[in-house]
Design a protein around this nucleic acid. Structure first.
Lengths: 344, 344
DNA sequence: TTTAGCACTCTTTTTCTTCGAGTGCTAATC
DNA sequence: GATTAGCACTCGAAGAAAAAGAGTGCTAAA
């Protein structure tokens, strides 16, 4: 049995209605909706078919139908109309960036806030992964005997720092020399290759400090060390708006899940080579997101992918609105970051 | 009418019991508790007195009593016994810092997590306010024409950065010179005074760039700019454990309140010149924290106050446990940060 | 001064009933 | 053959009524 035009139309109507109401949709409600010229009885028959095909489910015998994950999948793949953001929404969006443009990360934090407030869902933004960035400057700043702060600045305008151990007899002047040498040698090299270059070229040169440099940069390549793996999450509380989380336990487990930042990071990282991703309910790997859908978008700066952000909401989220907003933010973010990094 | 010994004993018993059970405490329950040698009837009389004095309240006629904020105040001021953390708890605490010692801020983030997981309340940690730190290094890194990243490193091992505008004709070499000059002139000066020093001493010297420097450092002193005002908040979801938040609306409004990071920062900032603070229910300025208590502690590095962290919980939180944990963390944090900044 | 006894109050829990939305099936209709 | 009206049936939600229980304040006795 295939999905003919009428079945699709009905399925769509069920989903649209369920997204709005969050309660099982009956045949009568469907037959009342626009362009639906069949009687409830006919629609009942079709709905029974759709249930047999796995697109609809019935919480109990005498209730209406709710869409399955499979139905949402079909919906987002084939039934979604994209639309531009309205100009008032664009204005709203831009208002979040006022006074907030002191750096990449604060822009991204504001973005997360904007996303969650505009969509009323939970927003997640991945902080830039410096591994793909290029080194602009490395500075070792002595803190105390045996300790220094290592600061890395990349071409993307991102700075990351870590406290490191240094040999006790290392002087500030020597640290400065090392900083300068590394900066020179690795200038504009991808962060992911810096450690390698150092081991190969520089440590030999600076024999006496070879061991130190090795440690320094093996740690530099460990992502943990320089604060990679960070995500900003905002608006988790929004989920409490929706009846699917009126059960306290569900709410708790959702909040517990999203507090696991490293898991979220993994998820976002995986999505980061796609322009857009939509992951519906059980398609999510994470235990606690089985009742959620995650929509992500990747934005670009200078035509190369820079970072990823997204929305987490109940599976019955308003997909088309979410996608429109993400698309709007995607463009916006490109422009704003561009203007932050290039001259105005 | 004064609070005699027996009234105090009864009040204490009521509070202890209410902290445990979260439901109104009756006279019978009290008379059963240890060292309570009076009959329920006697205790009822005393409880009526305590209610008249404003220490207890009755949700409705036929219910037990619950402590008022005034009662908690008395409780924390006069009835609290402090105790050392057990050694197993200390071990647990330390386990949070493993692999997490790459920098001040990541240590503080781990601290927040540890606090919330150990106490089962919400933890908040104020990131160091660099205004009181001393400048160790300033570096201007060119990003693109007209743009640079300004990075500040302080003696506390904290780095902060911001994207800034620079005159178009400024060369990398010139930026380097400026960086070095500022670092030299302001070395070990408090960040709060750096802007002033620059305006006074340096801008005159570098006439042509005077305007730029002024802008640069007026912005440096704006806290916003360099990411001051940040707090880390963890474990907000823990509040859903407690019956006082089984009402969805209460839970929502709590989460909404703590998502206002700047408000939280203000609160913490205010607490930061006290070793410990306990703020109970209506004593809180913030609207959304009227049903909460906030306990904070300030930790020291090198004997000078460094930062503040705290616990937010329901007013009937287990104060003595919370205080013990905070005290434990306070010591711990001092040691860990010390070891991070000084040689091992 | 303390306490046993008791009537009273008010919430919580349970049980039972009613209501209504929605279904699936059958038979009539287009 | 496809569609639809009609109808008996199911099952959860909502409401009402009843019962249970915890705790009180007061009185009078110890």
């Amino acid at each position: 049995m295939e999905l003919d035009q009428r079945k699709l139309q009905i399925l769509r109507a069920v989903i649209d209605e369920y997204i709005l109401s969050a309660s099982p949709v009956g045949s009568k409600a469907i037959s009342r909706s626009a362009d639906m010229n069949w009687s409830p009885a006919t629609i009942r028959n079709e709905m029974a078919d759709l249930e047999a095909l796995g697109y609809l489910a019935q919480p109990h015998t005498s209730a209406g139908r709710i869409p399955s994950d499979k139905a949402y999948r079909l919906y987002v793949d084939q039934m979604l109309r994209r639309a531009e953001l309205s100009s008032s929404e664009k204005t709203l969006l831009n208002s979040y960036y006022r006074n907030r443009i002191s750096g990449i990360e604060s822009v991204l934090r504001s973005t997360a806030q904007a996303l969650s407030e505009i969509t009323h869902y939970t927003a997640v933004v991945m902080m830039p992964d410096i591994a793909v960035n290029r080194l602009r400057h490395l500075q070792l700043v002595p803190l105390a005997e045996g300790k220094a702060l290592s600061v890395i600045v990349t071409d993307a305008g991102v700075a990351r720092d870590a406290v490191i151990d240094i040999p006790r007899d290392m002087t500030p002047a020597e640290l400065e020399t090392i900083s300068r040498t590394i900066t020179q040698r690795c200038y504009n090299r991808r962060m992911s290759t810096v450690a390698e270059i150092l081991t190969r070229e520089i440590s030999a040169e600076m024999q006496s400090r070879g061991e130190f440099l090795k440690t320094l940069l093996s740690r530099a390549s460990e992502s943990e060390q320089y604060g990679t793996g960070m995500v900003e999450l905002t608006g988790a509380r929004n989920m409490l708006r929706y009846p699917e989380y009126s059960d306290m336990d569900k709410a708790k487990s959702f909040l517990a899940t999203v507090e696991q930042r490293d898991e979220l990071y993994r998820m976002m990282k995986k999505a980061s080579d796609m322009e857009f991703t939509i992951t519906i309910g059980s398609e999510n790997e994470q235990e606690g997101l089985q009742d959620c859908s995650v929509v992500t978008a990747t934005y670009r700066v200078n035509d190369s992918p820079f970072g990823t952000f997204g929305i987490i909401g109940p599976t019955r989220m308003d997909y088309s609105r979410v996608i429109n907003v993400l698309q709007g933010v995607q463009q916006n973010l490109g422009v704003i970051l561009q203007s932050l990094l290039k001259e105005d």
